[in-house]
Write a protein that binds this DNA or RNA. Structure first.
Lengths: 243, 243
DNA sequence: CGCAATCTTGAGAATGCTCAAAAGTGGTGG
DNA sequence: CCACCACTTTTGAGCATTCTCAAGATTGCG
């Protein structure tokens, strides 16, 4: 998909109005992003953690793992997403943060973050809003796994992903990158790989989506949305004409 | 169960050291709590919301509901718990907050909250920590529903509940109130009422728990914990000798 | 005491899982 | 440029867990 100069700034501008100075700062942060290969841990569960992580390219995730190896992905991080602001209030992470696809990742020391939030209250405000949306998204994922059928779960996930990618200018009207494997989709939706595969086939059979290489294309947005009962309000993107 | 003068203060003291003035303020807030019957909405999904809600007695919950009536409870609120601090940054709630049992509920206008957090930075800090723990708990619930079997889900939920109730002095060594119905447990764990009932019977048959009236008693903490793979780290209660 | 809500039980059915293997894909080194 | 290898996707068959529907027992509230 097309690349975007600064998805972080773009995302925050959905919530607040940034000054030139604000944008300048965000630009500097994003410029420091470095390449990280796919499937690489950025911060590990149980370890202390003193940097804010920002994804500027690619897709990352948060996950927790059980002793038997079962893994639950609890969030996707798309370009513009960060980990928790207040991370330093706790002395260790309760989950692991990792890349799914190859990513560009910027890191901010909490010192720098504090400077920024003090000098740029509008950025601080926007990041708080972003954090609340992350939490609302987590709740929606719980509803997804707790209340929806396999087919509906995948459909809902795809709806959310496309909308979020559109919001940072990384999707066209109907398609976006889908770099994760079916195994990872299974870890996200609480299903097995086999059942993810069969659900994807069913979505294709119904003419709702198309998967080519690592690209997801939604063929019938309205029917997919209604199948998933997708109500994008929790993402708070109404400022943008993407929903 | 025994009542506690101020579970809010007690909870925050698990994270920070409060001054006498801090405690005084928390006391004043909690004193304003009012009785609310069971199964009453405190704040409704989709509505604007400008008050912080604090539960001082009883158990509440957050939930989201689907068009077909299916409901997913996304969190329990035990005494000392509040809703999000930053709630006013968003113009409406993405979920409903309600009581499960009869509760005492205090409400703080955001104006009052701002005063408090400005004059009492230690309280502000503790509330931020509490909010992070709420989010970590939400992640753990996602793992619960996404990765664990029916029996394990119930077991995990009970482990968490007992530990949280102990942390605010509302549980004995091995038992606490369990005011919610099996139907509500079903809405919490993503199962049907019938299956919750059978899982409870299985837990009793194995000698792990006892349910008498509305009281949960854990008969074999170590086996229940290991069945659920309960690792209470995410609750950050290590300051207290409750785990 | 009676009614409504909650809990319990049974039987049959469906959704989603397990195990196993085959087919397809992409990247790497020779 | 090809061949190989690891990973990913796909398929099949049988099975377990969990659900649905329905009805009966119990509990608690007014």
């Amino acid at each position: 998909m097309e690349s975007v100069s600064n998805p972080f700034a773009r995302k925050l501008e959905g919530f607040v109005t940034l000054s030139e100075a604000d944008r300048e700062v965000l630009h500097r942060i994003a410029a420091a992003a470095r390449d990280v290969p796919a499937r690489t841990n950025l911060a590990r569960e149980g370890e202390p953690h003193s940097e804010i992580i920002l994804i500027t390219e690619g897709i990352g995730c948060r996950f927790k793992q059980r002793a038997n190896g079962a893994r639950q992905i609890t969030a996707y991080l798309v370009p513009g997403d960060t980990c928790d602001l207040d991370i330093t209030l706790l002395n260790r992470l309760d989950h692991t943060i990792a890349t799914l696809s190859p990513c560009k990742v910027a890191r901010m020391s909490t010192l720098v973050l504090r400077e920024i939030t003090e000098d740029h209250p509008v950025i601080a405000r926007a990041m708080r809003i972003a954090a609340l949306i992350d939490e609302a998204t987590l709740r929606e994922w719980l509803v997804n796994i707790g209340c929806r059928s396999a087919l509906e779960r995948i459909a809902h996930l795809f709806c959310e992903l496309l909308v979020r990618m559109r919001a940072v200018g990384l999707a066209t009207e109907d398609s976006c990158d889908l770099p994760m494997t079916q195994h990872e989709l299974a870890d996200t939706t609480g299903m097995t790989t086999v059942h993810v595969n069969r659900s994807l086939q069913e979505l294709r059979r119904r003419g709702l989506i198309e998967l080519k290489g690592k690209t997801l294309r939604i063929l019938d947005w309205s029917r997919l949305k209604s199948l998933a009962e997708f109500k994008p309000g929790y993402l708070r993107l109404e400022g943008q004409a993407v929903v």
